[in-house]
Every structure is written in C-alpha cells, then in structure tokens.
Design a protein around this nucleic acid. Structure first.
Lengths: 156, 156
DNA sequence: TTAATCATGGAGTTAATTCATCCATTTATC
DNA sequence: GATAAATGGATGAATTAACTCCATGATTAA
C-alpha cells in the first residue's frame, strides 16, 4: 500500500468533521480552508466518501457534509480503501487471485507478503475516528457547534 | 510504501541468486529467463543493486552477478529501499523533515503514521535472504554451483 | 419569488512516474 | 580474435495522480 495524497486529504477531512459535534454540517469551503486542501479536488473526494456511505451530504444554503456513522464505526482502512481501492502491498499479492501469483503457483515470498498484508490491514483497521485527541488538535471545535444550535438530539 | 514492480523484480532476482551457492555467478539472461523478468529492465535493476553494494558484478564471458554480502546481511528493506528510496507510508511522514508535517506542526494523525512507518520498516528489515526455503522453491539450485570463478570487475 | 450558497457532474489538463526497449560500447575469457 | 557478458545513454509509451474549470441543480432565507 501507499497512502496517496487523495487518501490523506480524505483522512484530514474526515478527522476535521469528526472534531465537531455530530450534527454540525461542514461545507467544502470550510474544510478546504481549514485543512488547506484544493477546493475542487476536495469536492470530488467528499462526493466519493458520500457514495461510499461514510458521509451524508446536504445541498443548498447551509449544506455540506457530516458523518454517516458513529466515529467508532469509521476506520482509517474504510477511508483509505474508499479512495484507493483495496490495499495491496505488492503485485505478488495483487495477482494472487488469477494465477496463484503472477510468477509461480507458490513463489518463495508469497507467504511473507500475505502476512505483511494482513498486518497492515489490521493496523489500519484498528484506528477509527474516535481515536483522536480532538481537544488537543482542534480546540476550536466541539465547543461551538453549528451556529444555530437548536435541538440536542444527535442522530437524525 | 508501495512495492513497485521494479522492487519485486529486484527481490526475485536477489532471492534467485541466493538460492545458489555463494560463488555461483548468475548472468542477466539466466535470471531473466528463470524469473520471467524483462531482460533489459532487469539489466538496469542489477546494475543499480551493484551500485548500492548488494551485488558484485563480473564482466566478460561467464560474467554476471553474485551477492556482495552474506545472505543474512541483506534484508528486504535493503533491496526495496535501494530501488525505491526510503520507504514512507504517507506524505505526512514524507514531509516531516521540513515543516514538522506538511499541514500542521503537529497534526492529529502524525504519531499514528510514525508508528505505522516504524512497524513496516521493522517488518521489512526483519526478513533477509537466508529466510527462505530454497530447497522447496529452488530445488535445482544449491546442488550445481557455477563453473569458474572470474575476477571482479568492479572495485570499491 | 428571487438571490445566495451550497453540492454535483463531466470534461479536460498537466506533470510525473513507471516500465520498459534499443543499441552502441566496453570488458573479459576462450 | 571471436564471443558472450555487463554498461551506459537515449528514448518512448502508458498510466496515473493531482488537479482545474465550469455549467447545472438543489435548498433556503430574505
């Protein structure tokens, strides 16, 4: 696996959104300003995250995005794979469905890569959006939620 | 990190060479035939591995390559990094020398990536060329070693 | 109902990188 | 001196990453 910039942007955006109370809706402009991510590119990314079911989108004035699940239920792996597709550490693994391995039915290194693959997936799957110290890195969030702060109820 | 095809070729070549007795000299043609790696591309790769001090090269008839160190002293990490440069799991880590992190002096995810980085490096550094079951995957090797033993062409 | 503010969708661009190939040259051995 | 190796340089094709631009559509507040 290689974490593309696209994934990095997606992660930053998701972490940013998570920093706020769960009913706060964040616009593309807000996020791109805060995280210094190219606005138009970020738009594509957020749209994709919606399609993948990680975000809910709202159009119109005061529109934007919010998490589609609880923070605990969105892992780094979810976010990264929704940007890059399945994580594959190398071709040996990538081609393992077709020919057992691109080179030999059982190449000498296959089992090593498989283990490495599993380690990485497990590791990325073990971090979720509730794993962060938002108070430390996003002190501005949490306190002031959306400007109008009408109802307390969280989940729609 | 992402294991490029180039690294994969390099690994296969190194593993192939390791399968033989240490004084056996393997030519580009032999390796590319055995491992099904494009001949001209492999030539570049082996040259680079020599420059990096992982192989010794021999010119002239019966020339080719052999390991420049003991099998135990050549890790996957050595081989991969000599092909792709330093392993970096993401931009957050990649830019960490300049500005602490490309985005913020301390971004929320920085420590996670750093840990992930260390895990991967440790893992790749823990496998070396003596880690393989050559008898199983290269039964033809080991038995018949190289014929003659020419003089090194590359000093230093 | 109209203007403002948001997301959506599609097409196109740029630049870099990857993965090579070709061929002429140099070197060593038989 | 013929042969079989590595070396080195130039080049190219294909793919992908990382955007940018802009027109369209939805929503709401005035």
């Amino acid at each position: 696996m290689q974490i593309s910039r696209k994934s990095d942007y997606a992660l930053r955006a998701m972490v940013y959104i998570s920093a706020w109370e769960s009913d706060k809706i964040c616009s593309i402009n807000e996020i791109s300003d805060a995280e210094k991510v190219p606005r138009e590119y970020l738009a594509k990314i957020l749209k994709e995250l919606s399609l993948q079911g990680l975000l809910h989108s709202y159009k119109g004035i005061n529109g934007g995005y919010r998490l589609a699940k609880n923070r605990e239920d969105i892992t780094f792996l979810d976010i990264i794979e929704s940007m890059q597709g399945k994580i594959m550490v190398n071709d040996c693994i990538r081609h393992s469905d077709e020919s057992g391995c691109s080179k030999k039915p059982q190449c000498a290194m296959h089992s090593f890569w498989q283990a490495e693959q599993e380690r990485v997936v497990k590791s990325l799957g073990s971090v979720n959006l509730s794993s962060f110290d938002y108070d430390k890195y996003y002190p501005f969030a949490r306190k002031k939620a959306g400007k109008s702060n009408p109802v307390e109820s969280v989940s729609n």
